[in-house]
Design a protein around this nucleic acid. Structure first.
Lengths: 190, 190, 190, 190
DNA sequence: TATGAATGAGTCTTCATTCAT
DNA sequence: AATGAATGAAGACTCATTCAT
């Protein structure tokens, strides 16, 4: 196994275990076992458990960004572009429930809070979504609410729904997903 | 201090500490100190840390139920009754951020998942909200979506917004809250 | 065993093990075993290994101070008072080789260096010895050298000799000790 | 880099790091980095960390021997030859504080103790100093004390003084050094 | 011969739980 | 019933040494 493969294997093991058991339920020794490496090996790739977690988060966000940008309907009307982002979010989360669960853990932890703090307070308006919201608001298509609120109205429900699906509380099929996306659009549109 | 007072004091201390520091940041010894009782005393009231947490959760849910039922506008139109529930949720959460933070911790943990599993899979349609949703759907006022989905559309955003407010990412004033409640109503109404 | 006895037992075990094997050769688990307590118990008495070591040092210095002050020949000529301090140092060290070895470890470690730094740079002229040196220098009995140097001339050899005795490199009997004390006096007197 | 150069470089790096951070603060990996060789290479030159340390000690002692023998005033009176040895010790130590600090570490460790045990108990009377002491005692110039004791009286203070100088507790200038050397001579001479 | 990634035993420290008083 | 000292398993992290390349 190459260095890179090992690193990936460690990240993958950490992802699986943390998504299932949470940060505190996934000791480094368990991650090492799962990845079929010795504990010390993890520390060759990552400074600490904390940095392993941050790295994992970065990786997952970047994968998600890539997924969004793929097939992004740049020429389509605003509404379509919006629905695209939401649809990709749901599709990706359902296809990779492990990634989704890890990210939930991350956002609901001191890590996630300070990450968001840096992000939001830094006025980091660089994401696709931020630009989309800006444009749409100028066009008068959206309710005149702060970005943070609009994001809550869109992703709040989606997070819940995906989680409920993963835990088998509901069965999200294509039709239901589409209905939900429409509903979130209804929430924010004028 | 009577047995009952001690029990309350322990619950209160656990609530405060866990909401601030999380389950793993609030050792039993710290809870005991804060509650001004001996550590052993906690174990006379609660089987284990886990059961203390479950008990706390039950207590908070019941307090919340009480808050909803108070001033419930039984005679008003459906829409008003709906908005009442949401409004109480937000008002209560903002007034008691400690309770809110604890519940967030709880729902985003193995505890919360198994709790919801028991609740939802048990078809426990006894809550006010459940009845409201049933009635409204029969009247054709709401989108024909499962209860779980409707709940996600209402409370998903509200959880996000309250959290963002508590973390100072936004400032929720009365006007903004009302706008958000309207938005969630737009999401579910036909 | 009372709390205090336990604490003493831990200190004693740490003293013995560290004096024999050094700081790095005496893990907390070994100290606990030796003291017949669980590892966690140590942490009820001492913040950390480091603080245990500092505490031990403080204790030993205080014991030594007590030994010096006992039978201190306040009325005798300067020379006698000097020889008393040195004699007590040697006698105490030979009687308690474990204490001596611990202190050697301590002084030859980052702990000891910063301890001395605080002490010397703080102009902490409060010890018996400091006063003695001051008085003697004013009387013109001693070579006009800084205190630090005078201490080196007195205790440098004594430390070596006691260590050599403990390691069985020499056999210090009463006559030899007296000869050595005379020699250190010759080194500093005018 | 030839094998021999590598070996030297490793020794030099170990010397610098250990003198600064102690045996336990200087991991093999750090020594390797500093020496610009791979960690495995160290193990081709030295059996273990322990043997590397022993080797280093041997090297430093030999360098010191060389320094003493250089300019040794063979024809001068005994007193001069004595002072020469002490003077060279101090001068060398002040010029090479790194060497000095390493040797201190070494002597104050299990290594040093067993080294001295071998040396002293082996009656290894081969050094210049040993011969000097022998000769001087026969001439009746020195107090009739064992070699070990005489060495303690000479080098005990000098070690202390150099250390205090290196740690900036005193400032050793030429005059002060000379006064100290005189003092140690006073301690041993008849 | 040289490399440096991999190993895993060993370190300090924490904390849920128990039990003698 | 109440106490809180004692326990020891478990966790994150380090580093001397080995061995496949």
């Amino acid at each position: 196994m190459t260095q890179t493969e090992k690193r990936s294997e460690i990240l993958r093991s950490a992802l699986v275990l943390i998504s299932q058991k949470g940060f505190h339920g996934a000791p480094m020794s368990m991650i090492a076992d799962q990845a079929q490496v010795a504990m010390g090996t993890i520390y060759r790739c990552f400074e600490s458990k904390e940095s392993l977690i941050h790295e994992l988060h970065r990786e997952l966000e970047s994968r998600f960004q890539t997924a969004i940008m793929q097939d992004f309907p740049s020429g389509e009307p605003l509404r379509e572009r919006f629905l695209h982002v939401s649809r990709v979010f749901v599709r990706y989360s359902l296809a990779s429930p492990t990634d989704f669960c890890f990210l939930e853990q991350f956002y609901n932890s001191p890590f996630g809070v300070s990450y968001r703090r840096d992000r939001i307070l830094g006025n980091n308006d660089t994401g696709v979504l931020q630009k989309l919201l800006d444009e749409a608001r100028k066009d008068g298509m959206l309710k005149p609410l702060p970005h943070t609120v609009l994001c809550a109205l869109i992703f709040g429900p989606l997070f819940c729904l995906v989680r409920d699906h993963i835990f088998n509380f509901i069965e999200l099929d294509q039709k239901l997903v589409d209905a939900c996306l429409e509903a979130t659009w209804d929430a924010i549109r004028l």
